[in-house]
């Protein structure tokens, strides 16, 4: 049995009396401890898919099973990091993390929660900023806090919706490596579903890449990432295999677009 099974998921939206299909018959599964990236151009329904996994949205048809059980709404087995605004602006970094811990661990006392929060803020390199409010932190720091909170909640599954999408290139690299390190060194490793549109990011981080296509949102390809762990970006990007795999992904990515446009003139 897979950790997460997505079965024939279909989502229809109705907006101003026009309905459109965001996801159509999406099925794939994710193993325990697997890091899976979902990539695709905008409008392919990858964020819709994740919102159903989070439990915020409900599908029109189909279901998602976690540990063989159908999900109904949000759950304490899943931690979430959004692209924006995961943090509550009226809580300090430390309180944000502690608040997350409180929701999954009601028995922990306030000082215990703060202790765990501090520990995880240390891990993401924010020990000096724990008493700052989100408005006093940069976008990258805010995402570090959001990651610290998701990790501190110690859920089996981590759902990340383009968590580094709004961060500048340099900090994005740093955060990707931080996430990679934290995830690879944890035992047992968490099951991660990571939504992105960045091909390099998905190769570096994941075990499996699910490529989606738009109108309607469907799974286009599923690919295993054939690189050993622990991974090192600097070494990895220099290998032939990496570039071959990356080009393969890119060609798939654009052949999908070429199919959609339907013209022979799109040559890569």
């Amino acid at each position: 049995m897979s950790k997460i099974e997505i079965n024939h998921l279909t989502v229809d939206y109705t907006e101003k009396k026009k309905s459109f299909t965001a996801l159509k018959d999406v099925s794939f599964s994710i193993e325990e401890g697997e890091f899976v990236s979902v990539i695709g151009s905008s409008g392919c329904g990858k964020s819709t898919l994740l919102s159903i996994l989070e439990g915020i949205n409900t599908p029109t048809d189909g279901e998602i099973l976690i540990n063989g059980e159908k999900i109904k709404g949000t759950g304490t087995d899943r931690g979430v990091v959004f692209q924006h605004y995961s943090l509550f602006p009226w809580m300090t970094a430390r309180k944000n993390v502690a608040f997350g811990i409180k929701q999954v661990n009601h028995s922990a006392s306030r000082s215990e929660r703060y202790k765990i929060a501090d520990e995880f803020l240390d891990k993401v390199g924010l020990e000096q900023f724990k008493n700052k409010y989100p408005s006093q932190l940069s976008g990258g720091m805010q995402q570090r806090v959001a990651i610290a909170r998701a990790l501190a909640m110690d859920t089996d599954i981590l759902l990340m919706d383009e968590p580094f999408g709004a961060i500048d290139a340099k900090n994005r690299t740093i955060l990707q490596e931080l996430l990679l390190e934290l995830w690879e060194n944890a035992t047992p490793r968490k099951t991660v579903v990571f939504v992105t549109h960045d091909i390099d990011e998905s190769i570096l981080l994941s075990d499996k890449i699910v490529m989606m296509t738009a109108n309607p949102g469907r799974v286009y390809r599923e690919l295993k990432v054939p690189f050993e762990r622990p991974r090192n970006r600097a070494e990895l990007v220099q290998t032939k295999e990496y570039n071959k795999f990356r080009n393969h992904l890119l060609s798939l990515f654009y052949s999908d677009i070429a199919d959609k446009i339907g013209g022979e003139e799109v040559v890569l």
Binding site: E54, G79, F82, S86, F88, Q103, M153
Partner: peptide
Amino acid sequence: VEKKTIDSAKVLNV
């Protein structure tokens, strides 16, 4: 209140 704020709270299962 922004929907994002409410969603952030919802996924924390409050």
